Amino acid sequence: MNAKICFIGAGNMAKSLIGGLIASGYDANNILATDPNQEQRDALSSQFAIQTYANNGEALMHADIIVLAVKPQILRQVCAEISDTVQAGSPLIISVAAGIRTDDINRWLGGELAIVRTMPNTPALIQTGAIGLYANSQVNSEQKSQAEHIMRATGLTLWVEQENQIDVVTALSGSGPAYYFLFMEAMEKAAQDMGLDAKSAHLLTMQTALGAAKMVMESHQDCAELRANVTSPNGTTEKAIQYFETHNLRDTVAGAMNAARNRAQELADELGGEA
């Protein structure tokens, strides 16, 4: 793939994607980035030897693919500023802005554009992300491959067929790292309350989480099977699992994920209105 990619916005997600692309062999000469902050631009230029611009219009003249990597709250304004240039070139648009639907982006940019909406998560910053993707009807097979190639630079990619499924991805992998952080935080605190020192509790919690995730990734068993394998009858693990089940852990998780999905839908309505 040798398309010219222009990143609008030079924050952490853009930096992660650019770093992943270059690490995978993508030509830095084919990557551009824009940002009003000179410090951000200088950091990208210095680290990755890519061209950066303060002006979006100047950079977009060279772009085959545009990655919208700005905050959702300013995406409408950015789209209004670049719509004429985008309409003149009809590039592939990839959005990493959370909560903004493809129809709204398409409308703000003037319509009839190929748009891929993505939902990355924070582990993408260390190339271990889980990224959901949705393509509108204007996206062809080659453009889908291009979008997947770009997003795969930061981790696992998964396409969904219906855009509302991106809200489920948001509730699962988008917000999911925070669920695990909370669970790990609770485990550390409980271990300390039972007499373990803070450093030991932290190290054992981290390694346990890493080991469990690695077993799931590398085994040919699902989570339920792996759990059963380590839950000996009348043993310590069984007592802990019984406590979780008695106190409705599954319902709590489902309720939390529904709350996250519903909020994602509310934000899409708030940020993407006609006004």
Score class of each variant (00 low, 15 high):
residue 79 C to A: 11
residue 270 E to S: 12
residue 65 I to M: 08
residue 194 M to W: 07
residue 175 S to H: 05
residue 234 N to E: 12
residue 204 L to R: 00
residue 111 G to N: 11
residue 118 T to M: 11
residue 242 Q to L: 11
residue 180 Y to W: 08
residue 32 L to E: 00
residue 75 L to F: 05
residue 156 L to S: 04
residue 71 K to E: 12
residue 181 F to W: 11
residue 161 E to Q: 14
residue 30 N to H: 14
residue 235 G to N: 03
residue 256 A to K: 08
residue 23 A to W: 00
residue 43 A to D: 06
residue 16 S to P: 07
residue 164 N to V: 13
residue 147 A to P: 05
residue 68 L to Y: 12
residue 237 T to C: 09
residue 252 T to W: 01
residue 269 D to W: 03
residue 271 L to Y: 15
residue 12 N to A: 14
residue 199 K to R: 09
residue 212 A to R: 04
residue 92 L to H: 04
residue 3 A to R: 09
residue 135 A to P: 12
residue 218 E to I: 03
residue 218 E to A: 09
residue 228 A to Q: 14
residue 104 D to N: 13
residue 244 F to V: 02
residue 262 N to W: 04
residue 17 L to K: 02
residue 120 P to A: 10
residue 248 N to I: 00
residue 60 L to D: 00
residue 254 A to P: 00
residue 211 G to T: 07
residue 96 V to D: 10
residue 155 G to F: 06
residue 267 L to H: 08
residue 73 Q to K: 13
residue 38 Q to P: 01
residue 126 I to T: 15
residue 64 D to Q: 04
residue 49 A to V: 02
residue 145 S to E: 13
residue 147 A to M: 02
residue 193 D to N: 13
residue 134 Y to V: 10
residue 192 Q to P: 00
residue 232 S to P: 02
residue 132 G to T: 06
residue 108 W to G: 10
residue 172 L to R: 05
residue 165 Q to I: 04
residue 246 T to H: 12
residue 234 N to S: 14
residue 152 R to S: 15
residue 3 A to M: 02
residue 95 S to T: 14
residue 221 Q to E: 15
residue 236 T to Y: 04
residue 82 I to F: 02
residue 182 L to H: 05
residue 210 L to T: 09
residue 203 L to D: 13
residue 275 A to I: 12
residue 261 R to A: 15
residue 142 E to V: 07
residue 258 N to M: 08
residue 220 H to P: 00
residue 141 S to V: 11
residue 170 T to V: 15
residue 165 Q to L: 14
residue 85 T to S: 06
residue 46 S to C: 02
residue 134 Y to H: 13
residue 269 D to I: 12
residue 10 A to C: 14
residue 125 L to I: 12
residue 17 L to T: 02
residue 79 C to F: 02
residue 235 G to P: 02
residue 160 V to S: 08
residue 23 A to T: 05
residue 178 A to K: 08
residue 137 S to K: 12
residue 101 R to A: 14
residue 99 G to F: 10
residue 51 Q to S: 08
residue 50 I to K: 00
residue 97 A to Q: 09
residue 71 K to F: 11
residue 22 I to S: 04
residue 267 L to D: 09
residue 36 P to E: 07
residue 185 E to R: 04
